[in-house]
Write a protein that binds this DNA or RNA. Structure first.
Lengths: 134, 134
DNA sequence: ACCATCCGTAACTTTTCTGGTTGCATTAGT
DNA sequence: ACTAATGCAACCAGAAAAGTTACGGATGGT
């Protein structure tokens, strides 16, 4: 796997689960399906569980299941759950002595933050059910 | 610097250059300004030159200058010049035997590509001049 | 009671990405 | 000639991420 694998893995898995929402799936199944490792799957899906998108059960008949209906899970939910900010810069303390520079830095950061917000807005317009489509 | 440093560096540099578009700046100046290395600056700015956003001149009085007016350079131009796709997945050959799986994979890829396009669209609505702002 | 199965988590390794650095050829002005 | 700049290639170092192994805890079947 390469870049953006987490978002991609999450999306693929959720879309797949949306097919039969009641079926319980193990991280092993999902991993094999996605061509990766059960632990990696649990790591990513754990984030989604924290965000309330999935539930997991331990033990013999344990596994993973959607916590909501597919149409109630948006791409924004997934994106935010993974806690990856794609365009927004980190809030590095601007060490520039010049105040004009500082102001410019603020402007650039602000613009990037706006772009990030618009991305989330766009993501919120599509649900997992719609990804599955048709 | 951390993630997105290239985009951030490019944006900051262009915004700064937009202040006095006729002034020639060396990679050394820019690097010192950005707290990084001249070679790194040339790497990033080289991409922008390839995309026609900047011009560079070798030799004694050489350096970098905007190739267009700041209002004619959009954030999308910069983003695309850097050739970093943030949300779109790479076109990995889908090795899934099942055709249903393949179709789902295509759907997810398609959705991500749409998101990417909408991001670029959003970026194209803001110019460097506007970033500089006010 | 026992056992197989599955999640949760930690620790470690390997790979990949990226910025930083050095060196050198080339170009251009003085 | 000399100086100062880009262009480019090669390499190093550090961080980030995936992959792997291992083990503890929970759960259900036998």
């Amino acid at each position: 796997m390469k870049r953006n694998s987490r978002l991609s893995l999450a999306l693929h898995t959720l879309s797949h689960m949306a097919g039969s929402p009641d079926r319980m799936r193990t991280s092993g199944d999902i991993a094999e399906h996605a061509g990766t490792n059960p632990v990696v799957v649990r790591r990513v899906l754990g984030k989604l569980r924290e965000a309330g998108l999935l539930t997991s059960e331990k033990g013999h008949a344990g596994g993973w299941r959607l916590a909501r209906k597919p149409q109630d899970i948006t791409l924004a939910d997934v994106y935010l759950a993974l806690d990856e900010r794609m365009v927004a810069t980190d809030e590095t303390s601007d060490a520039s002595a010049c105040s004009v520079e500082h102001a410019l830095h603020e402007r650039v950061s602000g613009v990037l933050k706006e772009i990030e917000e618009s991305l989330v807005q766009k993501l919120s317009e599509t649900s997992i059910a719609e990804v599955r489509g048709v």
